[in-house]
Simulated scan of single mutants.
Amino acid sequence: MFRKLTSLCFLFLFVVSTSAFGQLNIGYLNTQEVMSQMPERPQVEQELNSFIQEKRQELQQRTTEFQDSVAEFQQNQENMSEAEIQKKEKQLAQMEREMTQFQRGLQQQIQQRRATLLEPLYNKMNEAISTVAERNDLDFVINEATSNGENVVYYAASEKMDITKQVLQYINETSDQN
């Protein structure tokens, strides 16, 4: 919260100081709205969901294999020598460590895949923002809200400053051309 207030104060001071020396044109947009309405978004979500489902099935398979091995060990433990029991317990412990490591790595793999799939969309959105900002002779474009939904722009004197619809229109026009 303190960082947000500090950032807003610095932004306000910057705007006031630059306004004293000349006209400053600032626009804002809602990047979450832009991302949610991009034509490629459903395909990206489908690919990501397929990847997640594939990894969940792999995790389920490993879990089932581990559970089967534990059940088999418990069932046959009475007929095993002490050395065989110790060897099998070591194998099961190793399987459990590998499964835990796989679970930890799974979230990282999903995040990496999400970033890889979303990168072209972010690049396209950034290109659209730049183009619309240049067309409107804007010096700055501010994101209307932070990634966790907190407002950055609380008030705008004019709706003309909101370039969200223009950015979406540009993206849709350039998507039709591809």
Rank of each mutant, 00 (worst) to 15 (best):
Q37W: 03
S147T: 08
E96R: 14
Q169E: 15
V141Q: 04
L168G: 05
L138V: 11
N123V: 15
I26Y: 00
I163T: 00
Q74V: 13
S7L: 13
Q111P: 11
Q67F: 09
N136I: 00
L118G: 02
V132Y: 00
K160E: 15
Q111V: 14
M35Y: 03
F2M: 02
I171N: 03
I142Y: 13
Q112P: 00
A20D: 06
L5N: 07
Q108S: 14
Q166T: 01
I26Q: 01
N178E: 14
S36K: 05
F73Y: 15
Q43Y: 12
R114I: 14
M161L: 12
Q111F: 15
E89S: 08
P42Q: 01
I171S: 07
G27H: 05
Q94I: 05
Q111Y: 12
Q112D: 02
Q101C: 09
N178K: 09
M1F: 11
A128Q: 01
S17G: 15
R3L: 12
Q177T: 06
R56V: 05
P42N: 02
E58C: 14
N30R: 05
Q177V: 08
T174P: 04
F14V: 10
Q112C: 00
M99Y: 00
R97M: 12
A156I: 01
L13A: 15
T64Y: 03
R113G: 04
F102H: 03
F2D: 02
N79F: 15
Q53G: 07
M35K: 02
R56Y: 09
T100K: 06
L117S: 07
A156T: 02
S7T: 15
Q43E: 08
D68F: 14
F140Q: 01
Y170V: 00
Q112Y: 01
I52L: 08
L117H: 07
S7G: 15
D68C: 14
D68V: 15
Q61A: 10
L29A: 12
Q112K: 02
A128H: 02
L48G: 11
L29G: 13
Y154H: 07
Q169C: 07
G149L: 10
E65K: 05
G27I: 12
F66M: 07
Q53P: 06
T164Y: 06
M99V: 01
Q46E: 09
S7M: 10
A128T: 01
D139W: 12
T164R: 11
Y28G: 03
Q60D: 03
S50T: 11
Q103I: 02
Q61S: 13
I163C: 00
S158T: 11
L11E: 01
Q61E: 12
I129C: 01
F102Y: 06
Q75R: 14
E84W: 03
R114S: 11
L117C: 12
E72P: 14
R104P: 13
E96C: 04
L24I: 14
V44Q: 01
Q74G: 11
G22H: 03
Q32K: 10
Q86H: 06
K55H: 02
F73Q: 11
N172P: 12
M125F: 08
E127V: 04
K90N: 11
L24K: 06
T31A: 15
D162V: 01
L8Y: 09
M1K: 08
Y154I: 14
Q67G: 08
K165M: 15
S50Q: 05
Q53T: 11
Q109I: 10
R41L: 12
F51V: 09
Q46I: 06
N136W: 00
E173D: 10
F140K: 00
V153M: 03
K87S: 03
R62L: 07
A83W: 07
